[in-house]
């Protein structure tokens, strides 16, 4: 008996071909992906050790600051848990995040937005989840930003997330949005997901219970990676 990944439900994921998101037109493959049950290749994966994470890696307000000058904008906490589809917390998951600064500008040579760079903010962070699958980042509220799509459109405020679980088949790259942002509903990238509940699951919620303990607004964003099932293989059935 081995642990195989449960099949991915593509109905809760974005459509690759989604012409409202213009960049997808020349990049999204037209043919259907080939499905198959997990092999040793997908159920294994790299595991990153906690010692790769520096002390300030999850504090984006300090990890690029010069002479202790804080970046502009309001400081927030983004936290949550990583678990699998059976609600088992995943310890040791690597989360990498990247985001625009408070003005909606990325520290990147391809960002043509005219908003200012913040010399004290790089916009990257990483963390490895603790035993209960918990993670936490301290950062600056990212600004919304304009980008060319069908004319100029505006991205809702968001943070990009890249996650490694225990196997390569659990690998996830996504974006977290902020509760109450009026730009979410018209965003073609959000709307490439047709399932309402799935869409909603990308919107972090303001956690008012933390008002008293932390002097920062806290947004909660829980992430669910694929689960594994115990699978019987025909040629081994008798022995089990």
């Amino acid at each position: 008996m081995v642990e195989a990944l449960i099949k991915r439900n593509l109905k809760t994921h974005p459509q690759l071909n989604f012409p409202d998101y213009k960049s997808s037109r020349l990049r999204a493959p037209k043919n259907k992906k080939i499905s198959f049950s997990s092999t040793s290749t997908e159920i294994s994966g790299p595991v990153f050790k906690k010692d790769i994470i520096g002390k300030l890696d999850n504090d984006l307000t300090l990890n690029f600051s010069k002479n202790n000058i804080l970046p502009i904008g309001h400081k927030i906490i983004v936290f949550g848990t990583i678990s699998d589809q059976f609600a088992n917390p995943i310890e040791g998951a690597l989360i990498e995040i990247w985001q625009a600064n408070a003005a909606g500008k990325y520290l990147h040579h391809n960002d043509n937005n005219t908003a200012p760079v913040d010399p004290n903010f790089a916009g990257c962070g990483r963390y490895i989840t603790s035993s209960k699958g918990y993670y936490e980042f301290i950062t600056i509220q990212p600004g919304p930003y304009p980008y060319p799509n069908r004319g100029i459109e505006w991205r809702p405020m968001h943070i990009h997330f890249s996650v490694f679980g225990k196997s390569f088949g659990q690998r996830l790259i996504t974006q977290m949005y902020f509760e109450g942002d009026p730009l979410i509903n018209s965003c073609p990238m959000v709307n490439s997901i047709s399932d309402k509940k799935a869409k909603q699951s990308l919107i972090s919620t303001l956690d008012t219970s933390r008002y008293n303990t932390k002097k920062l607004l806290s947004y909660k964003f829980d992430i669910i990676l694929r689960g594994t099932n115990q699978t019987f293989f025909e040629n081994r059935k008798e022995g089990l």
């Binding site: 520290l107 391809n110 990009h160 890249s162 996830l172 990238m189």
Partner: peptide
């Protein structure tokens, strides 16, 4: 109960910032 997996979203054009910062001189 099988929960829904968190959906994907595009990595966008600036993914280097989070995944390969040193490669773009951050």
């Amino acid at each position: 109960t099988v929960l829904d997996e968190t959906p994907f979203q595009t990595a966008g054009p600036f993914l280097h910032i989070g995944c390969l910062p040193n490669a773009i001189n951050i």
